[in-house]
């Protein structure tokens, strides 16, 4: 019975599933190099699954790409070269972190742009404080503090 279940399971295990655990034999023997490979892999998108890096996906193509990353690292190529190699074949789409270009300028500049607009708007509020009533006297402060404490 037990063997039957195992057999059944093994038969169906060939269904490709995203988000699965992979085999350890594709890992590099050198832990430092393997870590470097994982870092590169996490920047590259799995082209078959949605919104996953090739490190996380167990799709066959992702597996092949992982293998290529490791092969090229062993050949002594730099992470930059490997990413360029991938982009040459699969286009900008493969980068999970788009490179800065005219097309992605708005995306990358959004934080600064948004902060600048906000500060520009707030500056007017701050400016207005110049015409605000004079700051409270220490006596008024004391009264206000006691009132606030009561609250």
């Amino acid at each position: 019975m037990k063997r039957l279940i195992f057999a059944l399971l093994l038969l169906l295990f060939s269904i490709p599933a995203c988000l699965a655990v992979d085999t350890p034999d594709e890992m590099l023997p050198d832990p430092a190099l393997e870590q470097k490979a994982q870092q590169i892999g996490q920047q590259l998108r799995c082209l078959v699954c949605q919104n996953e890096s090739i490190e996380e996906s167990s799709a066959p193509l992702a597996k092949d790409l992982r293998h290529i990353v490791r092969l090229q690292l062993q050949q002594g190529r730099s992470p930059k070269d490997i990413e360029a190699w991938m982009v040459q074949r699969y286009g900008e789409f493969i980068r999970l972190r788009p490179s800065f270009s005219a097309v992605t300028a708005l995306l990358w500049l959004m934080p600064i742009l948004s902060l600048m607009v906000a500060l520009l708007l707030v500056r007017r509020l701050w400016h207005r404080s110049a015409s605000a009533p004079a700051p409270l006297t220490p006596e008024e402060h004391r009264i206000l503090d006691s009132l606030l404490k009561k609250d």
């Binding site: 996490q42 999970l96 972190r97 995306l107 934080p111």
Partner: peptide, 18 residues
Amino acid sequence: FGRTLSVGKPFFDATTIP
């Protein structure tokens, strides 16, 4: 623009943490 690109975890990590 008919361009395909991906915006994933590495981008969001780099922009939201600061």
